[in-house]
Amino acid sequence: MAEIEKVIVCEKLTKRFGDFIATNEISFEVKKGEIFGFLGANGAGKTTAMRMLCGLSAPSSGSAAIAGYDIYKEPEQIKRNVGYMSQKFSLYEDLTVMENIRFFGGIYGLTNQQIDSKTKELITTLGLENETKKLVGSLPLGWKQKLSFSVAVLHEPKIVFLDEPTGGVDPVTRRQFWNLIYAAADRGITVFVTTHYMDEAEYCNRISIMVDGKIEVLDTPGNLKKQFNAESMDEVFYQLARSAKRGD
């Protein structure tokens, strides 16, 4: 498999809600195994764009191919090849760790053997050996997030979409979370992540920053800092976000 394989190709992707253009002709490409940071202020259109890419929302115009499948014609194929972790914590709190894993493995159509081996692997990686029979609701938030991510990549998708995955988590846990992301990227899973934490933006291979529904810049964090003559990503973001016309 060639290094340059493009797993997300997006061209002039647009979503309108009546007169309001949430996402305005965005175009970009993401390579296999890349960690792609998708940044923007609240209301810039990140979530809408992401929802279109994972098939939750139909675009108004433009085209996109995810993992080589067309988002209009092959949504079922796309669903098989992407994982998704939403802003809200998205496991079942009244199910145990084990039951959650089995359930999500089940609806992704994994065989029992696959589920068993995956579960073992996941539990050891996360160090949850003593918690498998505990209800997920009783775990600390950091654990939940890590578990949630691991479940999102349980079926070894080509791409995983993470919508502000580390909201409300302490820096140490965030660091651990990013280690999981790196590990997934090393396995060849492309990571598409939105975040408001600029230190996290620095961990990405490339980032794009959306302002008012458009992608304003797209480059590596290093190049962006150079381009804006900034010390940190914080500054880059601030300079761009200041020009935004629409607020929350």
Binding site: L56, R80, G83, Y84, S86, K88, S90, Y92, I107, A152
Partner: peptide, 13 residues
């Protein structure tokens, strides 16, 4: 409400 519906809709189910 809990957001799990989105996860289900993204899945091939």
């Amino acid at each position: 409400e809990t957001g799990t519906m989105e996860i289900l809709l993204v899945s091939p189910f």
